[in-house]
Amino acid sequence: MYDRLGYWLASFALVTLLLVGGCTSPDAASQASDTSVQPTQARNSQMSNLPQLEGKATVVLTVKGSPITIEVDGTQAPITAGNFVDLVNKGVYDGLVFHRVVRQPQPFVVQGGDPQSKDPNFRGQLGTGGYIDPSTGRERRIPLEITPEGADSPIYSQTFKTAGIAQQSPALPHRRGAVAMARSQAPDSASSQFYITLADLDFLNGDYAVFGYVTDGMSVVDTIEQGDRIDSAKVTEGLENLKIN
């Protein structure tokens, strides 16, 4: 019993590390919260304006001169995958820092993707930023998008618990090498920050959106330290599957 309690407490503490810090501002937090309670028709219209990946794509991150190959899965997570591939293609991730690396008390994640980290002179708190869309001047947010195993389409804006299917498995589980979006406590608050899992992390299933897996280069991921930068991020296959309205 005590071992289980200790595991639960450690898991809870680790999950809080995935949260994007404070949504950056009260206004941004309000924006994210409002998205999750909009009428379905309005939310669907908003989602239709986001990039989507119809199929799969391959992205190669280069860190410390070594490649990390990611298969991005738009069949199970079209909006989440489309957002990532679009940002990679725009060069958003080039030069960004892995601002959070957690290996103790157990292997957990490496996390990056805060655009503020591109500036080596930035003195604020990393982990609070997201991608600012130059066409709107606002941070692009995407809905929480998780497909249950065997389902034809994703569930949006809800965790499996709030959707009443807490015991169900996702089509894309948090196994070692999963690539997923970090977010705040608001379901629809993910933007550009992502993490790569260092172990099987089943307790995250149904709460965070996995959109792909490292297929080559986990040995490189295992060497990433806090402060290491992404030298470059390139879409090497499947860019034709990215649809932008």
Score class of each variant (00 low, 15 high):
Ala10Met: 09
Ala13Gln: 06
Val20Pro: 00
Asp27Ala: 15
Ala32His: 13
Ala32Arg: 13
Ala32Asn: 07
Asp34Met: 14
Thr35Trp: 15
Ala42Cys: 00
Asn44Lys: 11
Met47Cys: 14
Pro51Phe: 11
Leu53Asp: 13
Ala57Thr: 07
Val60Pro: 05
Leu61Trp: 12
Pro67Ser: 06
Glu71Asn: 05
Val72Ala: 07
Asp86Thr: 10
Asn89Gln: 07
Tyr93Glu: 08
Asp94Tyr: 05
Val97Ser: 09
Arg100Trp: 01
Val101Glu: 04
Arg103Thr: 15
Gln111Asn: 11
Asn121Val: 05
Phe122Asp: 09
Tyr131Gln: 06
Ile142Tyr: 00
Thr147Asn: 03
Pro148Asn: 07
Ser153Glu: 14
Tyr156Met: 06
Tyr156Ser: 10
Tyr156Ile: 10
Gln158His: 12
Gln158Pro: 00
Gln158Met: 12
Thr159Asp: 00
Ala166Asn: 04
Ala166Cys: 08
Ala171Tyr: 03
Pro173Ile: 14
Pro173Trp: 14
Arg175Gly: 04
Val179Ile: 12
Val179Leu: 14
Ala180Ile: 06
Ala182Val: 05
Arg183Cys: 07
Arg183Asn: 00
Ala186Val: 01
Ser192Ala: 13
Ala199Met: 00
Asp200Glu: 05
Asp200Ile: 08
Leu201Cys: 05
Gly206Ile: 04
Val210Met: 07
Tyr213Arg: 13
Asp216Arg: 15
Gly217Asn: 06
Met218Asp: 06
Asp228Met: 13
Lys234Pro: 00
Asn245Pro: 09
Asn245His: 03
